[in-house]
Design a protein around this nucleic acid. Structure first.
Lengths: 355, 355
DNA sequence: TTGTAAGCGTTATCAC
DNA sequence: GTGATAACGCTTACAA
C-alpha cells in the first residue's frame, strides 16, 4: 500500500494534539473532552481516515480475524457453513478469512502455518479427508488460539466441536427405507477412516439389526470421494449382484444422484424397484427426478453455532471454557425417491449402542 | 494471540547474534555466512519459529493478501471463480480472503473499508446487484491498491476487468434456438441495470434481427434475482400468452431450471414443444431432465485470469500498467433441452453493432 | 483532560 | 559478514 495514507499522526499534527489524544478520541475514551472527541471525529471523517488494523493488531497482539478451513468452497455444505459463520462473525465485529484444504493434508498443514503467521483470533475447521493425525493443530493450544471443529472432527485433540449425530441420522434414513417396505438395503458409504462416514455405516447397521434384517457386507460399497461418478460406479456394482437391492442409502446427495442416474439407465423404476435416499439436502435434491429423500444437515445452523462458540472462547479466554461438543439436530426430508407402498410398521425407538 | 510466541529476538538471544542477522539469515540474504544461515534455520525449525506477518506487513507497508468480494459464496459461479483465484494466488505466494456483499451496496461499502483497513495488496471484485455508483472503490486509486473487476463490472471506474462477451454468447444461444427451428423465442432476462444482463438481452435481440424474426416485448420477462422461483414465475407468465413461445433463452441456469420445471408441470414437452437454454453451465444443468443447453462461462478460468492480472499489477506497480480488459471466450454446450429437428440453416456470422 | 514514551515484531539503513 | 538503530502506525502505562 504505497499510496498516501492518513494516519493518526496526521490528525495529531493538524489539530495540535498528541497522537495519544487522537487515538483515545477515536475510541471514544471518556477521559477525552466531548468537544475534542467530536472535533477529532469530524476531521477524521473529513480526511477519510481509516485505522490501520495491521498496526493495531500488532500492538494489541491480537486480530479480529477468524480463520475458516474448509475442504472445498464449491461444496454446497461448506459454502452454507461459511455463510453461517459470517452471519455471526460480522455481527460481532470479526472478519472471516477462508482457506481451502482441497482435502489435502499438506495444504492443511500449510494453512495452519499461515493462520499462525497472520495471528488469527480463532479457527473454525473441517478436517481434510486425508488428515489422520492432527498434530499440526496442537500449536494453537500453546498459542491460546481457540479452535472449533465442525463436521469432520478429530477425537484425539482437545477442541470444541459442532457435529450432527450421523449415527442417528443414518439410523432414521435406513429405518425409513425399511418402513416403506425395503427388504434388501444397500449402503454407498464414504471413506471409513473418516468418523462421520463410519458413523453413518454404523447407524445403517444398527437399523438393520433393530428390524432383524441380516447385514450383508456385499451390500456396502465404498465411494472414495463421494462424487456423482462414484455413486454411479457403486450402483453399477450393486446392480450386478445376483440379488440386487430394493433400497439404497447413500452417504451423501452427490452419490445418491449418481445412483439415481444409473438406476434409471438400467431401466429400473425409482422408488418402485429401488428406493434411494441421500444425505445433506443439497439444492439438487429437489431438481433430480424423482426428487431425493435425504437428511437436512443444517449446514447454515452449524456455521452459526461454530462461530458463536468460537467467539465466546476468544472473548472469555481467561474464564477458560472447557472445550464443548454441540450436536445439531437433523431432519429427515421425505421426497419422491422413497415414496413407495404405505408404511406397514411404525418406527421403533432407537436403542443406542456404545460405539 | 496471548500465548508464547517465538520471535527473531528469541533466536538472536539464543545464538548471540543480532536480530538483523537473524532476519537476514531467514531471508537467505547472501551477505550472511552460509554456516550462520544454516544454523539459524536449524534453530528456527527446532523452536518452531514462524514469522509474524502482521509485524512484517506493517514494516514493509504492504501485505500479501488479496481481497475478493463476491456477491455470494454459495453461487456456483462465484465459488468457481474463487477457486481459480486461489489456484494462482497460492502459487504466487499470496493469501486470499473472501468477503460476501450479499448483493448489498451497504455491505460492499463496509467491505471496502475493511479491505483498506487490512492493507490488502489488491482486490478482485464482482459488483453487488444493488451497486450503481462505485465511488467507494475510488479510494483504492489514491492508495495505489490495484483492482480487478470480474463479471459484473463498472464502466465509470478506471480499473481492469475480466468479462465474458455476454452479447456474443447470448447471440449464439439465440441463434442456436433459431437454427433448431424455434420461431417464437422468449427471453427470461436479468436485472437490466446490470450491464451483463443488458448485454444478454441485446445479443438475443441482435440474433432475432439477423434472422428476420420480429422482436416482441411480451416475449421478454425480467427475473429480478434469477432464482429457480423467478424462472418458474416468468415461465408461467409466458405460458399464459395467447401465442406461447416455442423456445426460451434464460439469463442463467437457475431460471432455466425453474422454466423446465414449470413447462413440465404444464404437460408440455421439452424440447419438442418448447426448447430451453440457460447460461453458466452449472453442474445441475446435467442433472435436470432434459439436460440443459447452456453457455459455459469459464468461471474457473475467469478467476485465474483475474488473479494473474492483479498480481502483475501488484508486482509491477512502478511500471504502471494501464488498466486492461480481458474477454474470456465462452462455449455453447448443446444438450437435450434443445435437441429438436435437424438444423435447416447454417449459423450466420455475427454482425456486431455498436452498443 | 492531555502528553510522553515505550513497545508490538519486523525490516532497512547505516555503520564497522 | 555482522551489529545498532530507527521506523512502520497504533495502544497504553505513567506523568503532568
Amino acid at each position: 500500500m504505497p499510496g498516501i495514507r492518513v494516519t493518526i499522526k496526521d490528525l495529531a499534527k493538524r489539530m495540535n494534539l498528541s497522537v495519544s489524544t487522537i487515538s483515545r478520541a477515536l475510541h471514544n475514551n471518556p477521559s477525552i473532552g466531548e468537544e475534542t472527541t467530536r472535533e477529532v471525529w469530524k476531521l477524521a471523517k473529513q480526511l477519510g481516515y481509516l485505522p490501520n488494523s495491521v498496526a493495531s493488531n500488532l500492538r494489541r497482539r491480537k486480530t479480529n480475524m477468524i480463520g475458516v478451513i474448509v475442504p472445498r468452497i464449491d461444496i454446497t455444505f461448506h459454502s452454507y457453513v461459511i455463510s453461517g459463520v459470517e452471519e455471526i462473525a460480522y455481527k460481532m465485529g470479526y472478519n472471516v478469512t477462508i482457506y481451502q484444504s482441497k482435502d489435502s493434508l499438506e495444504r492443511e498443514v500449510a494453512i495452519t502455518g499461515i493462520l499462525q503467521t497472520n495471528m488469527v483470533a480463532g479457527i473454525i475447521a473441517c478436517l481434510a479427508l486425508e488428515t489422520q493425525n492432527c498434530s499440526h493443530f496442537t500449536r494453537f493450544n500453546s498459542l491460546k488460539v481457540p479452535l472449533v471443529f465442525y463436521d469432520r472432527v478429530s477425537n484425539d485433540l482437545e477442541a470444541s466441536k459442532v457435529i450432527i449425530d450421523d449415527f442417528d441420522a443414518a439410523f432414521r434414513v435406513t429405518e425409513h427405507l425399511i418402513i416403506t417396505g425395503c427388504k434388501k438395503i444397500a449402503h454407498i458409504a464414504g471413506c471409513q477412516t473418516t468418523s462421520i462416514f463410519a458413523s453413518r455405516l454404523e447407524g445403517y447397521k444398527a437399523a438393520l439389526l433393530q428390524y432383524n434384517i441380516p447385514f450383508d457386507p456385499n451390500m456396502v460399497c465404498c465411494a472414495t470421494d463421494l462424487s456423482y461418478e462414484e455413486g454411479s460406479r457403486c450402483t453399477r456394482k450393486l446392480l450386478k449382484l445376483a440379488d440386487i437391492p430394493d433400497g439404497i442409502f447413500c452417504a451423501n446427495d452427490y452419490t445418491a444422484i449418481g445412483a439415481i442416474q444409473m438406476i434409471k439407465k438400467s431401466n429400473l423404476r425409482i422408488p418402485e424397484d429401488i428406493a434411494v435416499a441421500g444425505f445433506s439436502n443439497y439444492p439438487v435434491s429437489t431438481i433430480i427426478e424423482p426428487s431425493l429423500t435425504t437428511i437436512d444437515d443444517r449446514a447454515f445452523e452449524m456455521g452459526k453455532t461454530a462461530a458463536r462458540m468460537l467467539i465466546r472462547q476468544i472473548e472469555d479466554r481467561d474464564v477458560n471454557i472447557a472445550s464443548e461438543t454441540v450436536v445439531i439436530k437433523t431432519d429427515l426430508i421425505v421426497r419422491d425417491s422413497t415414496k413407495r407402498a404405505v408404511a406397514t410398521e411404525a418406527p421403533k425407538t432407537l436403542v443406542r449402542r456404545e460405539k
